[in-house]
Design a protein around this nucleic acid. Sequence first.
DNA 1: GGCGTGACTTATA
DNA 2: ATATAAGCCACGC
Length: 103
Amino acid sequence: MGDTFARIYEVVRRIPVGYVATYGQVAALAGNRRWARVVGYALHANPDPHGIPCYRVVSRDGKLAPAFAFGGEERQRALLEADGVAFRADGSVDLAHCQWDGF
DNA sequence: GGCGTGACTTATA
DNA sequence: ATATAAGCCACGC
């Protein structure tokens, strides 16, 4: 696989329990902020769902991926709630409180 | 090597 | 506030 995917996966692995990160944020931490789309592509490939918590990556508005491969948004929301992530009334993640700092 | 595609983002109307 | 346009990069054919 290319280095880009490897870096992206590396960043996603660093997301601590109870926090989430946006695609753009992951792209920026991976080295290039314009990889936002590539991040989505990489997570879609998701070669190691056991080590890569792709459910901790959400859109800029805290919206979840509609095409989540492991059971849809319901499943993703359940996993995030299990990690202690706070949700808003509309079902989106409360980024103000749960967005990963990047450390 | 070119072309189309996508789990995105930002800008503009 | 929502809708539409453009930019951006890696991957597969």
